[in-house]
Design a protein around this nucleic acid. Structure first.
Lengths: 229, 229
DNA sequence: CTATAATTTTAACCATACTCAAAATTTTTT
DNA sequence: AAAAAATTTTGAGTATGGTTAAAATTATAG
């Protein structure tokens, strides 16, 4: 039997810390309810876990005041996210998973691969920078590039855009986007945004598509200019 | 989010069932103490788990009388073992793990890969029959070939032998065996078994080695004739 | 600025999976 | 066949991670 260092934190702890990290991206401090909704748990369960996380010094917490990750907590979150995104890319590249399938499988495996495994797939993938949805992969020592792209909804109409990133959590949406030809690095133009929160008219190659605001919210782009002429 | 069927049984249940399967290979009925020793748990913990397994109808159990797997239990064990051995081979072939490293990593992952993952690596490995230690890989529907080879200790001296299988649980032993050139499919001859439980003298290619009985117990062989002329 | 609503925490409870110590049962020895 | 030894089970207790219902606190509206 190999010693093979046991994980420092339980899967539950890792999941909570990762969730807090994600929510923190949008809000200053993370509320119990928000976390509970995100994790599909009751607020009571979250309060308990918050105590445990605070004891482990992974978060700071003042009663009734929400939580924030400590640097230590952020490091744990980024390690889990690194595992997740490396796995997503590996499943896609090496095992032929579709981009709509990788998230669910990585979600399980991220807690159970060794540092050795991480190292090996990282090398095999030639030290990649982004996962199959365009999200940046944190480095081994916890550095992470900012997310690229601005929401498609906010892009100027008439400009040539490149798809840099898509939300990874909704396989249905991912399958539909793929059917429309909306994959990473594809060039698109916003032709028109229909009023009263109507659909967005897009030109993708030769085709024109009309997509709702909700779906558009899953897509992040950048004006072409920056990349190439 | 993908539905992704949650595991039917906990990791603990899977581990116990697998252990019972392995011990059953040697003994008719599996005793509490034997299981406890194998699992590194107290007998009290084992008794409790036995109740749970019996409730799930994975074992039959009469108090103070040891346990046996039901057909359902055997199926669960073989599914876990299938995951384990496919993973071992995959880690070895696709990710370059040494044969001394695969067991520990597979031990963790076997409980957390999906049927999809199993299916994909099975296909990628071209539906292999044995793992990197020569153990048979159960089929998807729970059939398993008998273990091949007889213990090196019981092999006739002077006959040409092939190594068909080695015990997988001791990485140290595996590393040492590899250093001696004792890998799968390698041809060896038992030159002499020294008396008073002394070492075994082996000829491997041009070299002669002396190995203790304990190590020899890890190696399983077959007379050459059967395979080729 | 108080009343109501929303949020958060506490309390009591459940399940899993483990521990140690004591009791029950089986096996072995004499 | 009784005494001693070994094995197995039970009982009481721990830790994690969840639940519901009630109490406490904070936020919001009139």
């Amino acid at each position: 039997m190999t010693p093979s260092a046991p994980r420092l934190f339980s899967q539950a702890v890792e999941d909570y810390v990762k969730a807090i990290y994600k929510i923190q991206g949008e809000e200053e401090t993370v509320s119990t309810t928000h976390l509970a909704r995100y994790m599909n748990k009751t607020p009571a369960a979250v309060t308990k876990m918050i105590k445990q996380l605070a004891e482990h010094r992974l978060i700071t917490h003042a009663s009734y005041r929400g939580v924030r990750l400590t640097p230590a907590g952020e490091k744990v979150a980024l390690e889990v996210i690194r595992h997740h995104r490396l796995l997503e890319l590996y499943l896609h590249q090496a095992l032929g998973y579709g981009w709509d399938e990788v998230d669910a499988e990585a979600e399980q495996l991220e807690h159970h691969i060794s540092e050795e495994f991480e190292e090996r797939i990282d090398r095999m993938l030639n030290y990649p920078l982004t996962d199959p949805h365009g999200d940046p992969i944190p480095t081994r020592d916890g550095a992470i590039a900012p997310r690229r792209g601005l929401p498609l909804l906010e892009a100027e109409t008439g400009t040539a855009l490149v798809i840099l990133r898509v939300r990874d959590r909704d396989p249905e949406a991912l399958r539909y986007l793929k059917r429309l030809g909306m994959e990473l690095d594809v060039r698109i133009v916003v032709v028109e945004k229909m009023p009263f929160n109507g659909p967005i008219i897009l030109r993708i190659g030769e085709e024109t598509h009309s997509v709702g605001r909700e779906l558009a919210g899953h897509v992040f782009v950048e004006p072409m200019a920056e990349e190439t002429a």
